[in-house]
Computed example of a mutant assay.
Amino acid sequence: MEWLELNQVDARERYESLLENDFRDSYILSTLTSQSEKKLRYQLTDAYEEIISQINDGINNGKLNYSKKKYYTDCYFGIELFKILRSFKFQLHDASNINIWRYISLYIIPDLVLERHGQKEKYFYSIPNRIWLRTIWWYCMLSMQTQIVDNKKVYAYDKTLKVIQEFNTDYILNIVDRSGSDGFRIQLVREIITQFYERREEIKKYFNNDASISDKEFPRKIMLLNVARLEVYEPMTYDGGIKGYVKDLFDFYLVNS
């Protein structure tokens, strides 16, 4: 699929047009330029409806926490967004293009962005680091777990969801916004996420089991420390490789402090 782009000025015009037309499904469909775009919209909206149903069921039966409903939406839909865009040949270089995210946000599924965030322009197009679809896609990409199937490494979506649903929105902001000044180091950030998950009980204990502090402070400190240490160390050549490098990041606070 050829991914169209939308610059800041055109994005503003599109957003105003959506407001004038009340984000109606019929209006959105009438402005799509190809059958591929319509197919993408149908798949994403169907997936969104399904995950909202799953989340509500999980909350009703006590398996999910009501207070994290919006975060679960980001996680569950982020995984579906990742899978569906991948089936449409969405690549890393596409994900790095903010104008493509503006287009997807304002042409393909603007009504879903509206449902999640209301009429807040920054989540549609105006602030690159806050565009919702971009943020949750990269959060899932950077958190993606893998498994071996038929001697090949493949993405493990269920495992990824199991990991990230233990966290909250503070992790999204810290992971996506503080992953490095030279762009995302995907394997490195994935190891950080893995150790956030594997050492979560140790982290909570360090902060006297006060999750309101540990979930805000620790990921922020780790990501800031990582950015600083990348100026000095190369994780690939660190003692123990990336895993050893990340272990030392965590130990700086959890063991040596």
Rank of each mutant, 00 (worst) to 15 (best):
I108K: 04
I98E: 06
F82K: 08
R41E: 01
L92H: 05
K70L: 04
A47D: 07
Y72E: 02
L92S: 15
I59E: 06
K69I: 10
I104S: 01
Y66V: 05
N60T: 11
S105Q: 02
Y66C: 05
F90I: 06
D74L: 07
F82E: 12
I98T: 05
E50D: 13
I109M: 03
S67Q: 04
I51W: 10
Y72S: 14
Q91D: 03
R102P: 01
G78Q: 02
K89G: 10
K70M: 15
L44H: 06
K83H: 10
D74R: 12
L106Q: 09
I51C: 05
K69E: 09
N60M: 04
F90E: 10
E49Q: 09
I84S: 08
Q91S: 13
I108V: 06
R102C: 12
P110Y: 00
D57P: 12
W101F: 09
N65Y: 15
L112N: 00
Y103A: 03
I52R: 06
L112D: 01
A95E: 04
N61Q: 06
L92W: 13
N65S: 13
F88Q: 07
Q54M: 10
L92G: 14
K39S: 05
F88K: 02
R41A: 00
L40H: 02
L85S: 08
K83A: 02
L40Y: 03
H93I: 10
E49A: 12
F88Y: 10
G62Q: 13
Y66L: 13
Y71H: 04
Y107T: 07
Q43W: 02
Y42S: 09
I84G: 11
K39Q: 03
W101L: 07
D94R: 13
I84P: 04
V113W: 01
L112W: 00
I108H: 00
S87L: 11
L64G: 04
Y72N: 04
Q54S: 05
L85I: 06
F90H: 00
F77A: 00
S87T: 01
Y71G: 06
E50F: 06
Y66K: 15
L44M: 07
L40W: 01
Y72F: 15
Q54L: 05
D94C: 03
I100G: 08
G62H: 08
I98S: 06
F82M: 13
R41D: 03
E50M: 12
I55M: 05
G58I: 03
S96D: 14
R86L: 15
L112H: 02
I51V: 14
I104Q: 00
K89P: 13
I109Q: 01
V113H: 05
N97T: 12
K70I: 11
K63D: 08
K63E: 15
D57Y: 13
K69D: 09
E50C: 13
I55P: 00
K70Y: 15
D57H: 14
K69A: 07
N60S: 11
I79A: 10
D57A: 11
S96K: 15
L81G: 00
K70F: 13
I108F: 12
E80R: 01
